[in-house]
């Protein structure tokens, strides 16, 4: 029983990261059909903003020693800032472009951000131990769970509830949901496109900052590619969940996290290095079973 509980928490904490990532990608995809490949680089950027630019091996914290009450909002705001800036500087100028062009533009943007960080900080991982208080364990039902896992899962749940409340209870939220479901129709009904898109970028960037924090607290390092693997899985989760369905993206994020942990647990040793192959094969199977995703909004139609 404790073993099961432990595995459940492992799956939930990994799933949380993927879910937050998927949400960030789904929000933007919903309003402007952009698969934002720069999202992973927003994650790294928001963390590297804490560090003083140096290519030396040592890490000089620029803003790291401030209390968490300042640190957390700062990282999240940086995430929002870089995201909003990229909308204003790049994506706003690509409103009429097709999804492939948008996607490649986002990739190019991510490439620029990544290489900028590489030039300023070098590829050596930077260590930073922020929020060290989370490096403890708690007993839940006999299982010893790292406090960080509990906090990650709890924070994810809080973020999801807050976001749901925002989307359901406010006018902005209503506009955004409408835009995500059918952007053209929403525009015709008076939704101000640029404002909604900007807001989506801001929220998506905040989520990137939050993921960055979760990763850095877990790993203790900032690395140029730290956001990449989360972003790739999140991207897949967005599609499996059903494009346009924020709820689906979150659930799919948790499912992939769960599948990955489960594979690690049940596969025999010789097959374990092939874990990701099994996970991705599963992705193909799910897509074949539900090409529209698990939770496709009813408005979505397959374009043959």
């Amino acid at each position: 029983m404790t073993a099961v509980l432990q595995i459940l928490f492992d799956a939930l904490s990994l799933g949380s990261l993927y879910a937050l990532g998927a949400l960030g990608i789904a929000l933007i995809f919903g309003v402007m059909r952009l698969v934002n490949f720069a999202h992973g680089d927003y994650i790294s950027f928001s963390i590297f903003a804490l560090l003083w630019p140096t290519t030396a091996a040592t890490t000089i914290l620029f803003l790291g020693q401030v209390p968490p009450a300042v640190l957390i909002p700062f990282v999240i705001l940086i995430g929002a800032g870089v995201s909003v800036l990229s909308e204003i500087l790049v994506f706003r100028r690509l409103r009429d472009a097709n999804p492939a062009t948008l996607m490649i533009a986002s990739f190019a943007l991510g490439f620029v951000i990544k290489n900028l960080l590489l030039m300023l900080y070098s590829s050596r991982p930077k260590s930073l131990s922020i929020l060290p208080g989370l490096a403890q364990q708690v007993e839940i039902g006999g299982a010893r769970i790292p406090l960080l896992q509990v906090v990650t899962v709890a924070a994810t749940i809080v973020i999801l509830i807050a976001l749901t409340a925002f989307l359901k209870r406010t006018r902005f939220g209503l506009e955004m949901r409408a835009a995500a479901q059918d952007f053209t129709m929403a525009r015709m009904l008076g939704v101000r496109a640029n404002r909604v898109i900007l807001l989506a970028f801001a929220i998506s960037g905040m989520l990137a900052g939050a993921i960055g924090l979760a990763i850095v607290v877990q790993t203790g390092t900032a690395d140029i590619n730290m956001g990449l693997s989360v972003m790739l899985v999140a991207f897949i989760a967005t599609v499996i969940g059903g494009l346009g369905s924020l709820y689906g993206a979150v659930v799919a994020g948790f499912l992939i996290g769960g599948a990955s942990v489960l594979m690690q647990v049940i596969l025999p040793l010789d097959a374990r290095p092939f874990r990701d192959a099994f996970v991705y094969a599963l992705v193909i199977v799910v897509l074949l079973w539900r090409p529209q995703g698990l939770f496709a909004p009813r408005t979505a139609k397959q374009r043959v």
Partner: peptide, 13 residues
């Protein structure tokens, strides 16, 4: 794998 976001499952083992 080096870039695994979490190795919780390995640690549990």
């Amino acid at each position: 794998v080096n870039d695994d976001a979490s190795i919780a499952a390995q640690i549990t083992r």
